[in-house]
Amino acid sequence: MCSLALVPADYTQMKINQMENKTMEGLQIVVCGTLVPDPLQTLEPVTTPTGPGLKNETMLPSVLDPWAAHSLYEAANLAKKVPGSKVYLVSLGPKAKLQQLMMTVAQKVPFELVAIDGTAGGFTDAMEVAKTLATAIEAIPGLDKTRLLVFGGCASASRDAGVTMQLIGEQLGITDQFVGVDEISMSDDGSFSVLERIEGGQYLASTCAGAPAVLAWATGSLPEPPNNPQVGMANMRFVMPALQKAQPAAVGVGGINFEKSEVPAQKRATRIVKDVSADVIAAEIVEWIKG
């Protein structure tokens, strides 16, 4: 067996070098993303003193918000292509839950975590969330807006409003924004072209003169990377300190008055047709389609 002696310490040093080498041209890609309940979990609304929440919210297994996750993988892929680039993941969530989530996410791609200790629930006001995230981004040491791309999902699987990324961009003063992005290609001069999803399964194609820009991603085109323990260990050097110094943020429902939250009973009286020939079923379906 031949072993490749790439020990994490070297890797870490490499990352530190990248960070400190100010002359190196590259992108600063800041990905905004946090946890949402694992999609197969059953969700039930409950009323809490601070507004609506989910039953057993602290216990529900979570995953990285799917569209934000796609944007993280796209960010890592882009960073690999543009030498000297660096990926940050800015996450607003309960510290303990973020820590658990990071043990899965940190194995996927290299990034530096910026953690903010607050709720990741969906009923918070996007404006408050955006303000908190924008403030955290502004505070990233060495942030250079001329090299900044802010990534995230085009909507979360929790609030699902599709507005947070634009509001972050506005607060950072970034006026080139793209939503529902499936593809980015960078040119050598720093300009890039983007495909955004629009109605009817079509794409809007644009080019932008360069950073800074906000890209809120749809699914992109990359599969979920495998779990790489070495990437995990390297990320951990930043994850644990980031969690330890995570500042609490009071993110609430803003000015929203929630009158009612419910899981509508939508059980239908299902008619099950079995032991009937395909011909009969086909005839019934055709009649239904035409009817």
Binding site: P37, P45, E262
Partner: peptide, 13 residues
């Protein structure tokens, strides 16, 4: 909210 899981009615002042 939560991708068509929970229906809410809300208002703002």
């Amino acid at each position: 909210y939560y991708r068509q899981r929970i229906l809410t009615t809300l208002s703002r002042a």
